[in-house]
Amino acid sequence: SDIKVHVGDITVELHNVSEEFARLVEEALRLGLNEEQAKEWAHKALH
């Protein structure tokens, strides 16, 4: 599904992702990663 993740003043739109993936992206953003890094990190975490 499509999910918007908000962290501080950052909003990341995720398309066709699981809630778990979105949660991992949100966690990575909170750790200070940028959007691209957060998506990559979440992807690796799920595989």
Results as ranks from 00 to 15, higher is better:
K44C: 07
E26M: 13
D2F: 11
E20S: 10
L31E: 10
A45L: 13
N16H: 09
A22E: 04
R23F: 11
R30S: 09
V5K: 00
A38W: 01
H15C: 03
L29F: 02
D2C: 10
L14V: 04
A45H: 15
D2G: 08
E36N: 12
F21G: 00
D9A: 14
A22D: 03
F21M: 05
R23T: 11
H47A: 15
H15R: 01
A38M: 01
S1C: 10
L29R: 03
A28Y: 09
A45P: 01
E27M: 15
L14C: 03
L29T: 02
W41A: 08
V5I: 15
E13W: 07
A38Q: 00
L31M: 13
K44N: 14
L31S: 11
E19R: 12
L46D: 07
L14G: 04
K4L: 15
A42Y: 01
R30D: 04
L46Q: 11
I10T: 07
K39A: 05
H47D: 13
D2Q: 07
R30I: 13
L29V: 05
S18I: 03
L33K: 09
E19I: 15
D2N: 13
F21H: 03
T11F: 10
G32D: 03
E20L: 11
N34H: 05
K44E: 13
L29I: 09
R30V: 10
A28E: 00
H43D: 13
A22Y: 06
L46Y: 13
A45M: 13
F21D: 00
Q37R: 09
V5A: 02
H6Q: 15
V17W: 03
E13K: 02
I3S: 04
T11H: 08
L14S: 04
N34G: 11
H6P: 09
L33W: 08
N34Q: 07
G32S: 02
T11D: 06
A45D: 04
E36F: 12
Q37L: 11
V7E: 05
R23D: 08
L33C: 07
I10Q: 08
Q37M: 13
E26H: 08
E36G: 11
E19P: 15
V25F: 10
K39L: 14
K4V: 15
I3K: 03
N16R: 02
N16I: 05
K4D: 08
E40K: 11
E36S: 12
N34L: 05
G8N: 07
E20W: 09
I10R: 02
E19S: 11
H6D: 12
F21S: 00
A45W: 12
Q37N: 10
L31H: 13
L14R: 02
E26R: 09
H6A: 12
L29E: 01
V25H: 02
E27K: 13
Q37D: 14
K44D: 12
A45C: 07
Q37I: 04
G8Q: 06
E13R: 00
R30A: 08
G8P: 03
L24C: 02
S18C: 02
N34K: 09
L31N: 14
L29W: 01
H15A: 07
L24Q: 04
R30T: 12
W41C: 04
V7D: 03
A42Q: 00
S1M: 08
N34E: 09
S1I: 09
V25M: 03
N34P: 08
E19D: 08
N34F: 05
L46K: 01
H15M: 10
N34A: 09
V17E: 05
G8M: 06
S1Q: 09
L46V: 13
V7T: 05
L31R: 13
I3P: 02
A45N: 15
G32E: 02
E26A: 13
A42P: 01
A45K: 14
F21K: 00
K39T: 06
E40R: 05
V7Y: 15
K39Q: 09
A42I: 03
E35G: 12
H47Q: 13
V7H: 10
E26I: 12
E27F: 13
E26P: 00
I3Q: 07
V12Y: 02
A38E: 00
G32Y: 01
A42H: 00
V7W: 15
L29Q: 02
L14W: 03
V12P: 04
V7G: 04
L14D: 03
A42L: 02
E35T: 12
A28I: 01
H6V: 15
L33M: 15
N16D: 11
L33R: 04
A22C: 05
V7F: 15
L14E: 04
E27L: 14
L31C: 04
R23P: 01
E36L: 15
Q37Y: 07
V12H: 05
I10P: 04
H47C: 07
H6I: 15
W41H: 08
D9T: 12
W41M: 08
K44S: 15
E13I: 15
D9I: 10
F21L: 04
H47T: 15
V17I: 07
N16T: 05
V17M: 06
L24M: 12
K4W: 12
V25R: 02
A28G: 12
L31A: 14
D2T: 14
L24F: 12
